[in-house]
């Protein structure tokens, strides 16, 4: 073999490149995700929810926000309230033990949480008045009052 000094490093780089998944995980078995399932029945079958829940949520979003329609009739005829925080999360209340398990596993970043706030969040610290607030003696409460009125979800009955 000629040009070993270039060909062999080349082959090594090639192998490292294509074998990336193998050395990255260094052969360690990763258990499949195990989302904590609440008791009872979901709006649709488990199989359907596994592969299509995002489509369903998309339909729900469009219905609730664009059409103001808040009732979903599932394939078995049962009726369900449309809502993420007030629907799904009523049973699946822990995001980190349900949603995140699969999403992290498959590196999916749903943008639900750009607007929605999952039920279990860290408690807000009591706001500390800033230097300016203290200087002008403005009560920090002002902001807190506004925020609490926004906490309610759209169209809450």
């Amino acid at each position: 073999m000629y040009n070993r000094d270039k060909v062999i490093p080349g082959i090594i780089i090639f192998v490292l490149f294509v074998a990336f998944p193998i050395w990255w995980g260094h052969g360690k078995s990763v258990p499949p995700p195990n989302p904590e399932l609440p008791k009872g029945k979901c709006v649709e079958s488990k199989e359907y929810m596994r592969s299509q829940h995002m489509q369903l949520l998309n339909v729900w979003r469009n219905k609730a926000i664009r059409e103001g329609m808040r009732i979903y009739v599932s394939s078995d005829g049962s009726r369900h309230w449309i809502g993420l925080q007030n629907g799904c999360m009523k049973c699946h209340h822990d995001k980190s033990k349900f949603c995140d398990r699969c999403h992290t596993y498959a590196a999916v970043q749903p943008y639900c949480w750009n607007c929605h706030i999952p039920p279990e969040m860290k408690k807000f610290k009591t706001p500390q008045p800033s230097f300016l607030l203290r200087l002008f003696k403005i009560p920090p409460k002002l902001k807190a009052v506004q925020a609490s009125s926004e906490e309610a979800e759209h169209g809450e009955p």
């Binding site: 995980g25 499949p32 995700p33 699969c102 498959a106």
Partner: peptide
């Protein structure tokens, strides 16, 4: 996708 990844990750590991 989770099942797919179970298979593909199984291959990789």
């Amino acid at each position: 996708i989770a099942s797919v990844k179970e298979l593909t990750l199984g291959l990789a590991t």
